[in-house]
């Protein structure tokens, strides 16, 4: 029998028998990835606010000491959780808690442990991304906000973080996609996500490759949908290129403004005709009588 038709046959057999388990795995993986990424982003934003609290020599000593301590803690958190494997963090937290508390404390559900581990791991990465995002925002924005009397927290929440957030969406997407894939290491604390089902099923029937093929397609589908949605979010946050003038006498007030031509018209710089025309002009020069 042809290898490929055999593969398709095996995949069909596996899917027919276990599709419910596979889909359940997809569901668990997605829930874990979405929740943990969201919490991780919040942790990252909080670290970003804490890290950028201004500190001047005029501040009282206790405040300066406190700020130093806070910064040290944030730094240590980032370095530790970025610098150790997530598998080990899971083991440390899930088994370490009962070990140190003589079994008095333990995680009631493996979900709580998994979300905790992936969240704080993502948070460590996001803290650095947020820091980069904040640096990328023009310092004039901070000055503008301070000049109208906003304090650090108000400046961050209203002005800086919305702009930084827009700039780090590609990073959030990165982390989300990494989380979809890397949550597979949570099998170590017997969290049953997508990949864990693969291990369980192949243990039963030895169909390693066909099951792996299903997994591959499954993961790729999830990540592709994720990146598509993130792109859409990015576009939405950028807002419209156009705006409406609020006035009865539009002709007068519109002087000096520029509305982008509608998409698809020959004047739109993104339209096929416009680009083709520009290319022809570059090649042959402007045709006569064109102006």
């Amino acid at each position: 029998m042809n290898v490929f038709s055999k593969l398709i046959y095996d995949i069909g057999r596996l899917w027919g028998k276990y599709w419910g388990s596979y889909l359940n795995g997809v569901k668990n993986t997605l829930i874990l990835a979405v929740v943990a990424t969201a919490i991780g982003v919040v942790i990252g934003l909080v670290c970003g606010i804490l890290n950028t609290i201004p500190c001047s020599k005029n501040d009282p000593l206790p405040k300066r000491v406190l700020l130093k301590v806070v910064r040290f803690i944030v730094r240590a958190y980032v370095e530790i959780f970025r610098g150790t494997p997530m598998v080990l963090q899971a083991v440390f937290i899930y088994y370490g808690l009962p070990y140190f508390s003589n079994n008095a404390l333990r995680f009631s559900s493996v979900w709580a442990a998994a979300i905790l581990v992936v969240s704080i791991n993502t948070g460590a990465y996001m803290a650095e991304s947020v820091r980069g995002g904040i640096i990328s925002v023009d310092p004039g924005q901070t000055e503008g906000a301070m000049a109208i009397g906003m304090n650090h927290f108000q400046t961050m929440v209203n002005v800086i973080l919305p702009q930084a957030f827009r700039n780090i969406i590609p990073q959030i997407g990165n982390n989300f996609i990494i989380n979809i894939k890397d949550t597979s290491v949570m099998f170590i604390i017997s969290f049953t996500e997508f990949f864990a089902f693969h291990q369980y099923i192949t243990g039963v029937n030895n169909l390693y490759f066909p099951s792996a093929a299903i997994e591959m397609v499954g993961y790729l589908t999830m990540t592709l949908i994720a990146s598509f949605l993130l792109r859409a979010l990015e576009k939405r946050l950028d807002g419209s290129d156009n705006y409406e003038l609020v006035s009865e006498d539009q002709l007068v007030m519109a002087a000096g403004t520029y509305n982008h031509p509608d998409k698809g018209t020959p004047f739109d710089e993104r339209s096929k005709e416009y680009r083709e025309k520009a290319r022809q002009e570059l090649k042959y020069g402007r045709t006569r009588g064109d102006r």
Binding site: D138, G140, Q141, E143, G144, A145, M146, A147, I148, G149, N158, V159, P162, Q163, R166
Partner: peptide, 16 residues
């Protein structure tokens, strides 16, 4: 600062 307004050379309007 809320009693002392400031206008900058580079405007510093909130871009968002």
């Amino acid at each position: 600062r809320s009693h002392v307004g400031m206008v900058f050379q580079s405007f510093n309007l909130f871009a968002n």
